[in-house]
């Protein structure tokens, strides 16, 4: 792409300009905070780093655990494709074995053909179920003090209802705090509640955009109970220097632990990082399957010739 047509360039320029203008219209941090307070959306609070004593206590009570999942697909055009799903549960207690669950599927093996979106949706659901199962095993085998899950807790409630109910029961019975960590916030609850004070461009802005730049490092907004996500408590937190907040869900029944979880998340997040606790990065890196590994495994088990057949032509394109 050596040359860009004039027309093309013009269009990009125009859109970029519009986006910039929109951004300029966003009310400042103070104004946003005021709107949020006036509309009783929630309360701004300051998290504190846990002291060594607190950490020692958590360790004594079972430490922390984390569950994450990953999904890879290899092959060509649907349905010539193989899905590999993996869920992993680890504990900060080194002596505990990791809990690893996996599932490998291909639409070619289904009795009847279904549409690609449906199949993909199904895979997503299966992954949530796999993760929930890993979480259940973590709770029963590790008995941690805190269990971090990757993504919103609502996702589990929707995608893996029965497993999630089991998890909840065990957690409540054993007083294990469950927290879902959301890196990419997609909700837009705040803008809905304060929209009267917002310029038209921001009436439907996502929560992360509203809060971006409105909080200090370590500060979090605890959303008023019942405002959204029924059965859960949600807080948005700026846990690192990165101005984009992350989301944290906990069970409504465990609302007394909100502050504790906020502090723990803040303690475990690298200051220069993107806001996700290092602990979740560790789980994420452990569970992720690299493409090279995938390919090696598939080639190994399927035979290179067969693997070659399902590969799309575009992959054989010269670079």
């Amino acid at each position: 792409m050596e040359r860009i047509g004039e027309d093309f360039k013009e269009k990009i320029k125009k859109t970029a300009e519009l986006l910039k203008n929109r951004g300029l219209k966003k009310p400042g941090g103070e104004a946003i905070r005021k709107l949020i307070k006036e509309n009783h959306v929630g309360e701004f609070l300051k998290a504190e780093r846990l002291r060594e004593k607190d950490l020692d206590e958590i360790k004594l009570e079972g430490g922390i655990a984390g569950v994450d999942g990953s999904i890879n697909s290899i092959g060509g055009v649907y349905p010539y494709i193989i899905f590999i799903k993996r869920a992993l549960g680890i504990s900060s207690e080194k002596s505990r074995e990791e809990i690893e669950l996996s599932e490998v599927d291909s639409p070619l093996l289904m009795e009847e053909q279904i549409k690609e979106e449906d199949y993909r949706a199904l895979q997503k659901k299966r992954l949530a179920e796999l993760e929930a199962e890993a979480a259940r095993q973590v709770l029963t085998k590790f008995r941690p003090r805190v269990l971090f899950l990757d993504g919103s807790l609502v996702r589990f409630k929707i995608e893996a209802k029965s497993r999630f109910d089991q998890i909840k029961d065990i957690a409540l019975k054993n007083d294990v705090v469950i927290a879902g960590l959301v890196e990419g916030i997609s909700t837009s609850v705040i803008s809905g509640s304060i929209n009267k004070g917002l310029p038209p461009e921001f009436k439907h802005a996502a929560d992360w955009e509203i809060l971006m730049g409105a909080m200090d490092v370590g500060e979090y907004l605890e959303i008023k109970s019942g405002l959204f996500k029924e059965g859960f408590r949600t807080l948005f937190m700026r846990s690192s220097l990165d101005p984009k907040p992350i989301g944290v869900d906990i069970l409504e029944e465990q609302k007394d632990y909100t502050r504790f979880i906020a502090n723990l998340v803040y303690t475990l997040t690298p200051e220069n990082g993107r806001g996700i606790p290092l602990w979740m990065d560790i789980v994420d890196k452990k569970v992720k399957i690299t493409d090279a590994f995938m390919e090696a495994v598939i080639n190994g088990f399927l035979g290179e010739d067969f693997a070659e057949i399902i590969k799309p032509k575009r992959e054989k394109r010269n670079p």
Binding site: R49, L50, E52, L55, D56, I58, K59, G63, I64, S92, E93, K94, T267, L268, T269, P270, E271, N272, G273, R274, P277, L278, W279, D281, I282
Partner: peptide, 17 residues
């Protein structure tokens, strides 16, 4: 991004990891 943060690593160690 995600630059090494000794405090966090120390906290994790405190938790046993």
């Amino acid at each position: 991004h995600d630059f090494f943060d000794a405090k966090v690593v120390e906290s994790l160690k405190r938790l046993g990891y």
